[in-house]
Amino acid sequence: MTRTQLIGLLSAILLFVAIYCVFSFAEIEMTMLEVQKIFYFHISSAFTLFLAFGVTFISSILYLIKRRDKYDTIALVSTEIGIVFGVVVFTTGPIWARFAWNTWWNWEPRLTSALILWLTYIGYLILRSALAEEKKRGYSAVLGIIGFLNVPIVYFSVELWKGGLHPDTSTKMNLPPTMQIAWLISWLALTLLYLFLLMFRYRVEQMKLELETIQHQQMGEL
């Protein structure tokens, strides 16, 4: 069993434990009742999204300093996976919002800043596909760094701009112990899932590079 498969297996097991904890162990919240259970994977996905873009940020800095292709590849694959986690956040969020706030979307600080963050990294992928090979790595690394500056703004948006619909950052500390445990296990499970997808996607990207090298060799022979 390879390291990637082992992490994949561990993440699958932990996802089951997380689902068990969410549905059977964590107590029911008395305002939103069963719908509140969306919270565990919604918030965990948002935190994993921050982690993914954090990896992009660090890899982009390392690429600009050391100019090694592997850092650029890690930044690219981490961005892609971060965007996938973003899709989870932006689909489960409106389901929650429709029930809690009677609307699918609201232009409040947390939602708006998170959307800007997500769109910035979609822009990162568009930029990569639009630029020539020699330019795309440097320019996208710069965007990968600038984009991450929005993460603290998203996180502290409720404190920065009063009047939002999301609760402030201290709410998670006031959760009952069973809810806190279920949330932490869900977060750990999604972090492992992120790690698995990162290693899997990185291998695919390496295969792409290998294919390009062989094709160049063949072209050289012709």
Partner: peptide, 20 residues
């Protein structure tokens, strides 16, 4: 409430499965 809950978890499962 259960309809909302099932929809959310089904979407999460669908997104990760499709990506994998």
């Amino acid at each position: 409430r259960l309809k909302f809950l099932v929809s959310a978890y089904f979407i999460i499962w669908l997104i990760f499965s499709l990506y994998a």
